[in-house]
Design a protein around this nucleic acid. Sequence first.
DNA 1: AACGGGGTCAACCGCCTAGCG
DNA 2: CCGCTAGGCGGTTGACCCCGT
Length: 388
Amino acid sequence: MGRSPCCDKVGLKKGPWTPEEDQKLLAYIEENGHGSWRALPAKAGLQRCGKSCRLRWTNYLRPDIKRGKFSLQEEQTIIQLHALLGNRWSAIATHLPKRTDNEIKNYWNTHLKKRLAKMGIDPVTHKPKNDALLSSTDGQSKNAANLSHMAQWESARLEAEARLVRESKLRNSHNSIHHHLNPPPGFNLPPPTSSASASASASTSAHLVTPKAWNTSYGLVAAADQLESPTSTLTFSENVQIGVNSMPMIEFVGTSSSETGIIKEEGEQEWKFKEGIENSLSFSTSSLHDMTISMGGWTSPDQSLRPTSNNNNDGHGNNNVGNVIEEVGFTNLLLNDSIDRSLSDSGKDSDENSGSGGDGSDYYEDNKNYWNSILNLVNSSPSDSPMF
DNA sequence: AACGGGGTCAACCGCCTAGCG
DNA sequence: CCGCTAGGCGGTTGACCCCGT
């Protein structure tokens, strides 16, 4: 299992790509598709290793890439997904179809990580920084474990989606390339995002999924073109319907500045909640969608998607997480956990489960809002998925 | 104008893994 | 089962840019 020697060969050019090289690569792929990356450079007349060509293509030349500033929606999507998935940039990128994993990674490292740190949130754990010092009560650790397991399921689902999308793109790459590749005159790279190119990623996976916005009823992903999810097509035999009425009212924390209540103050770079908007944007989850939980029985044809850990597995292929959720609701898992921790952080003696008696500190609010926003993603992103 | 420090991001590096013979 | 390869991924680097002094 040796390392690929492709870049060790002498005589291969490294460093920044020239417009001429870009042109060659584009022209070749447009004509032939990329095929074998290893063989591509020679065929395309490039003094580059295949890996370098692949990277240049996927991170820069590919026509279905949206470039430029990240929107607030995108920013928060990244944060939320990072909370679930960690540094799994490619998985995160599947939910931001026009962004590359490299771009997301860079943006995280240069912007978002620092911003979260400023907010007092550990960008690695997505917990308040001083939270690490607190020991968990039984209930809290249980909730944390459940949350972690939920994240694992979501992670597995994302992996499946990513795989499906990749396969789909592979199948379609040659056909679609002629439609999407259209370098502008004068070869100003990268090509501007056009309506045609913007549809690229959706079109490549169109036969797999219904490109439906996660949930537009409350504006979280009103910009469906930005956040369209390559929704899973996995099916499950035994669905457990969570009664939406059993779900608690949650406060919606949206994702764009003026519409959804989070404003980024210049200078301080902090997000604060805009109270007036908060009131106007309270939703019951019952207005969102029916959440279909399918933890009861795993019947995915792809058994590799099963999360590996299995403290919650009863040994018969059934996962108890579903039961837990049925009892308390994922929303409660998140909110209670967050609120409990927030109260603890505020130095309050906390009756476990009390969840009240806070003094409404900013810290409390920030925390709750932060987790609310993550919750919204978790609740909304798989709206087409039977996973949640 | 010159310089330095910090930010940004394209590109590289090295490891991992699926797939194939 | 084993060895090899190609492709994918996440971490890191370094060139370039911007801004403050």
